[in-house]
Write a protein that binds this DNA or RNA. Structure first.
Lengths: 163, 163
DNA sequence: ATGTATGCAAACCATTTGCAATGAC
DNA sequence: GTCATTGCAAATGGTTTGCATACAT
């Protein structure tokens, strides 16, 4: 779908949400939403802050945190917290269902689409719980790290022999 | 399986790991492992620290963090980072496959076992990636929060009418 | 004997908060 | 005009780090 059309839709959705919650429709909030939907893939708080303040619209970190929370609440943004200290975010609307491959060695995150791994979570009746969405993270090692690790292990074994 | 038997096994596994990595086998490390495998379910850093220092073995926070990382590396402990500021941990050995129900409202985490939701992640061939384990989080609202939220919404609508 | 691991306190750093100024309504 | 929102800077708090001491090897 066209990027601009998606932007219009999410903008409208955000407006509806803000109205329903009786929150103000500030230019900062729309600038943040627009920035997020101008890119594809994951982004960090820092990257978003840099982009907004360099090219787009002067906004403080506090406001970005505040707005991101609103966007998470109305399901226009997804937040990931994986190992590292800081969080990663991605847009949620018109973003095909996908999972995340996380390298336990270098921390790199890759999207992973697989029709076979669509999980019937949301259709299931769970006792005392109303499911709304899910996140699946697959941990392992990326090829680069795997190669490096193998070399390391080989070296380490050699050392042991010498001793 | 018997708790003590499991403790013996994980102790042995930990010993093997420490030997392979040429790390010292300190009493602190074994005390931490023992504490973790003395309980069931999730635990926080604080709870572990409190338990160890009150009933078990005087250990500093720094050492617990250090040891927990070793235990994660050798797959005896799993770490979860969900929404809240702090992490949650659980033992990994002899812990039946289960997923996690996370209430987006109160943050409460519940284990969820379902044979239907066993995912053939680890058998799959993924390009340029060697999968090792996965984590599935199902987000939604627990019954308590759902009831509370419904009441709130009803109240809010009433207010709107009055205005 | 050697150098890794511990404990302590300080440092770190992503995120949150308090408050005065701004601006959406 | 009112009060939610912003920006700033300070606070917070979980986690990490530096360093002297202890102790596993």
């Amino acid at each position: 779908m066209d990027k601009d059309k998606i932007k219009d839709i999410v903008k409208q959705k955000f407006t509806e949400y803000l109205s329903a919650k009786r929150c103000r429709k500030t230019p900062e909030r729309y600038a943040i939403l627009d920035s997020i939907y101008s890119h594809s893939g994951h982004f960090s708080m820092d990257a978003l802050y840099e982009y907004l303040n360099t090219y787009h619209f002067r906004v403080s970190r506090a406001t970005i945190y505040n707005t991101i929370q609103l966007l998470i609440d109305c399901k226009l943004v997804i937040k990931h917290q994986l190992g590292n200290n800081s969080s990663y975010y991605e847009k949620a609307y018109n973003n095909d269902l996908h999972h995340h491959l996380v390298c336990t060695h270098c921390g790199n995150i890759r999207d992973y689409k697989s029709n076979e791994l669509e999980i019937p979570v949301l259709n299931k009746k769970i006792k005392q719980f109303i499911p709304s969405f899910y996140k699946l993270y697959i941990f392992g090692t990326c090829k680069k790290c795997n190669t490096a690790l193998k070399k390391e292990t080989a070296k380490s074994l050699e050392k042991t022999k010498k001793k």
